[in-house]
Structures are given as structure tokens and as C-alpha cells.
């Protein structure tokens, strides 16, 4: 048979794996594996090769209409260019922060921006209360408002060391270094096995073509 090699058509915002590997903790083959995952996610609802918020939520919850405060914020942080969609470069750079080998400073900064809901440059007490309440609302944990206030107060007095009613980056860094478990969600062990989960079919098919 005759195999006609077509030039691979990439999604909008595609960047060379070598470039992305140089800027992130991923290897070139891991970036290629992430591209397989990216293509799947970005074509799950609309086939435009970009990840929309609904597609992100569908991937996280298997439900495109489920709203979640943190899924919204994480999507916004992935959307580095702030144009309402996540392209391949943004996807890889953002996931890079969650790699087990990413610098802890990057994880601390990402978490700070995540919790700084209103993007004022500080985590405010109101924001902390809002996050805890939103989470309790969606979970099966039933805690009274008094108990929530007590928990928030205790955390706040521990974190707001300057006592000015807001947590700045410096206080946040001190706080998470004191309680490193707070960063556990900032590391995704899956990212170390990404080439096993998403082998690059493109590369293997090219090898076969050469052999033929």
C-alpha cells in the first residue's frame, strides 16, 4: 500500500515541545504525551483545539455545568493570557508548577494567587472564610458558622503574623513552610508517569513509516 504523509496540523497556540521542555520541569517526550492529553481535553465539547472553561470542568468533574470556586480560579490561573481559553503552551507551563520536580517557590506562588480570590495581592480574611464556606457547602461536612469562624480565626492568627488583617506573600511563605501539608495539592504524582499514560502515537507511527 501507499502511505501519504500529511503534514501534522497542530492546534492553535501549539509550541514546540523542545521549547516547552526547556522552560518547564517536563522532558520533551513528556510534553509530547501532554499534547495527546491536551488534544483530547480541548476537543471534548468544541473542536477548536483550545480548552474552554466548560471542557476543563468536564474533565475535572465529568460534568460541564458543575461550578466550583477553585476549578474557576485554577482555570483563570492557567489562562495566562486572560483571553478566556487555555492553549497548549499555557496548559504545559501551568501544569509544570504541579510537577513533583517544580521549584517549591513556584508552588507557593501559585497557591497564593489561587487563594487571593479578588486579586488584590493579599489573601484577606473574608476570602478565607468564603473558600471554607464554599467547600463545606459542596461537601458532606456539616459545620456550624460558629465552628467555621473559630477555625478561620485560629488559622488567621497563626498566618497574619504582622496583624494587619491580610496575608501578604511573605507571611504566606512563612506559613506554608511551617505547614508543608498545605502544598500537597500543588504536586500531581501523575505527571511523572505521563508518558506511560499518554504514549506519543505520532512518534511511534513515524518510526513505522520509516521502516516501511
Amino acid at each position: 500500500g501507499c502511505f501519504c504523509l500529511k503534514k501534522t496540523k497542530h492546534t492553535p497556540g501549539y509550541e514546540e515541545p523542545t521549547v516547552l521542555a526547556a522552560e518547564t520541569p517536563f522532558t520533551v517526550s513528556e510534553v509530547e504525551a501532554l499534547y495527546e492529553l491536551y488534544k483530547k481535553l480541548s476537543n471534548s465539547i468544541t473542536s477548536d483545539g483550545l480548552i474552554h472553561k466548560e471542557e476543563f470542568q468536564l474533565a475535572l468533574f465529568r460534568n460541564r455545568n458543575r461550578r466550583n470556586l477553585f476549578a474557576d480560579r485554577i482555570f483563570d490561573l492557567f489562562d495566562i493570557k486572560r483571553n478566556g481559553v487555555v492553549d497548549f503552551g499555557e496548559f504545559v507551563r501551568s501544569l509544570g508548577v504541579f510537577h513533583p520536580n517544580a521549584p517549591i517557590e513556584d508552588k507557593i506562588e501559585f497557591a497564593f494567587r489561587l487563594y487571593d480570590l479578588r486579586q488584590t495581592g493579599f489573601i484577606e480574611r473574608e476570602e478565607l472564610k468564603e473558600m471554607v464556606s464554599a467547600l463545606l457547602h459542596e461537601s458532606e461536612l456539616q459545620l456550624s458558622d460558629d465552628v467555621v469562624e473559630m477555625i478561620v480565626d485560629k488559622t488567621w492568627s497563626d498566618a497574619d503574623t504582622k496583624g494587619d488583617g491580610k496575608i501578604d506573600r511573605e507571611e504566606w511563605k512563612e506559613f506554608v513552610l511551617k505547614y508543608p501539608s498545605l502544598l500537597k495539592n500543588m504536586t500531581l504524582p501523575y505527571l511523572k508517569d505521563i508518558t506511560m499514560a499518554f504514549p506519543s502515537f505520532v512518534l511511534s507511527s513515524e518510526v513505522e513509516d520509516t521502516e516501511i
Partner: peptide
Amino acid sequence: CNLNAFDIISYSSGFDLSGLFEEK
């Protein structure tokens, strides 16, 4: 009460990105 408010937040499913890697 030794619960840390940020620890409670980490229970949120929205903060768990592992869903991105699950087979759909």
C-alpha cells in the same frame, strides 16, 4: 480544634486536578 482552614480547602474536589488525567 486543630483544623487548619487551608487544610479544609485542600479537601475540595476542584483543587484536585487528577481528574484531568483520568480516562474519559
